[in-house]
């Protein structure tokens, strides 16, 4: 790390000519991405989290719902780490016990799996539907555009988390309904982004050529317009995963999302929020987990934007 502000500058200077083999647009984007400090940090965090999620069964010393009852172990026991001088007779508890005698460290580890799933599933769903709406609106124009985009405007007129809360209140609390609500409220963002880039792409000569060759509108839309319009979606989607994880955690914190004993970080915080004064570790660790995850996707998203946005390439 240089001690300067380079890590945070949005544009990295072009460090000399690139080798010939890396000149494809994709290769160039990847190189720019890997050279970007915030992308490096973000990618490191996200890859680590994915590994933790994949190998949660091996990393976590206990099951997420396993109660550890031993003489001398109290409910909400603080962390006990042997190398830091905790008695060897006691079981090692990296983050302490929660209110139900469960190992908090194991629950936080399993929580990574859940939070990544929440982030990917909601954002994936929202991108799928949003892209379709945006592409159809931008490509067809006219009244379809008008109706679809005004509908999106109305959804955007609500603060997203509050609309999600309202949707969950109607559908009933639960993890699936939370995912659905968070996905619904993020659709308009993707619809707008895709529409804007479709409007730009559809005027290009290769679209005209394809249409002159007799391709059907759907074929043009799916085979030519969409692949060329998706770059901004990658950026917005990465940042969207961060928002989705935060929103879902918020709903679970209020008791409207995941239900016990699910190891969801927001729910873990919500369950133990009244213990903050006598067992702060129960609030600290799940919160840090959320923060690090969200930070990872935010940094990666910023890095992707710098690497992929043509306006920033100069």
């Amino acid at each position: 790390m240089q001690p300067t502000g380079a890590a945070l500058r949005s544009v990295e200077p072009n460090q000399g000519p690139l080798p010939f083999c890396a000149q494809s647009p994709f290769g160039r984007a990847v190189r720019r991405l890997l050279r970007n400090r915030s992308a490096q940090a973000g990618l490191a965090i996200v890859v680590t989290l994915v590994l933790i999620a994949l190998f949660a069964d091996i990393i976590a010393p206990y099951a997420y719902d396993q109660q550890i009852r031993q003489p001398g172990l109290r409910r909400r026991s603080p962390p006990c780490i042997h190398v830091l001088g905790c008695e060897r007779e006691k079981p090692q508890l990296l983050m302490g016990l929660d209110g139900n005698f469960r190992d908090l460290f194991s629950r936080v580890i399993y929580g990574a799996r859940l939070s990544l799933q929440i982030g990917f599933v909601t954002t994936g769903t929202a991108i799928l539907i949003g892209t379709l709406i945006g592409a159809v609106a931008g490509y067809l124009g006219g009244w379809a555009d008008m109706v679809l985009m005004r509908a999106m405007d109305v959804l955007l007129a609500f603060p997203s988390l509050l609309l999600a809360i309202a949707i969950v209140s109607v559908l009933g609390p639960g993890l699936i309904n939370t995912l659905l609500a968070v996905a619904i409220v993020s659709i308009p963002v993707y619809a707008r982004v895709v529409r804007a880039s479709v409007l730009e792409v559809k005027e290009k000569d290769y679209i005209l050529a394809s249409s002159a060759l007799g391709a059907s509108p759907w074929r043009i839309l799916l085979m030519h317009v969409m692949p060329n319009s998706l770059t901004p979606v990658i950026v917005v989607g990465t940042l969207g995963i961060a928002t989705a994880i935060l929103d879902a955690a918020g709903l679970s914190f209020l008791g409207l999302g995941a239900q016990p004993p699910t190891p969801e970080w927001g729910l873990m915080l919500g369950e133990e929020r009244n213990s903050v004064f006598n067992a702060p570790h129960l609030v600290l660790f799940p919160g840090v987990a959320i923060m690090v995850t969200v930070l990872g996707f935010n940094l990666l998203g910023d890095g992707l934007r710098d690497a992929l946005d043509p306006r920033r390439r100069v």
């Binding site: 890590a7 945070l8 935060l246 914190f253 915080l269 609030v283 919160g287 959320i290 930070l295 935010n298």
Partner: peptide
């Protein structure tokens, strides 16, 4: 400068914190 870097690190971390968690930590 170091001040700029510090402020922007804070900004990156700041946008990633869940409000309810920050609230609990501040209360503590």
């Amino acid at each position: 400068t170091a001040l700029d870097v510090g402020a922007m690190v804070f900004a990156n971390v700041g946008v990633s914190m869940p409000v309810f968690w920050l609230g609990l930590m501040l209360a503590y």
